[in-house]
């Protein structure tokens, strides 16, 4: 069972994504900011990370770089919104595998995951 780390400071988003994924048999772990995500990544080694960009404590871009520093093969998909074009590009350049734009539907998330996990 693939393990997915969902990182977003909005609980609503985490719950929504968990609901999308758990039905398909993914194991979901959650973190509410970049710092907690980094710790969770080290401890739990998820298969894929779905990560918001704008977060308190540690933002998504920093967390992405930190995670990649720990595991250069980390598969991180950024969750983004309108108006973050340059940050998204920065994330892709830094090694994010993909990005998903909010609002997104279940198929988009599952599709992106399947592409990475196979």
């Amino acid at each position: 069972m693939a393990k997915i780390l969902v990182v977003d400071d909005a609980e609503f988003l985490r719950v929504r994504i968990s609901k999308m994924l758990v039905g398909d048999g993914y194991e979901v772990i959650e973190a509410e900011n970049g710092l907690l995500a980094l710790n969770a990544y080290k401890a739990q080694k998820p298969d894929v990370v779905l990560m918001d960009i704008t977060m308190p404590e540690m933002d998504g871009l920093t967390a992405l770089r930190e995670i990649l520093a720990v595991d250069s093969g980390a598969k991180v998909i950024m969750l983004t919104a309108l108006g973050q074009e340059s940050v998204v590009l920065e994330a892709i350049k830094s090694g994010a595998k993909d990005f998903i734009v909010k609002p997104f539907e279940r198929d988009r998330v599952v599709g992106a995951l399947q592409k990475l996990i196979g």
């Binding site: 609503f12 988003l13 704008t54 308190p56 919104a81 609002p103 997104f104």
Partner: peptide, 18 residues
């Protein structure tokens, strides 16, 4: 930053519920 984040999060959530 906190103000921006709050607006941003509301926007994101609002988008998800249409």
């Amino acid at each position: 930053q906190a103000l921006f984040r709050s607006a941003h999060t509301i926007k994101g959530t609002a988008g998800m519920i249409g």
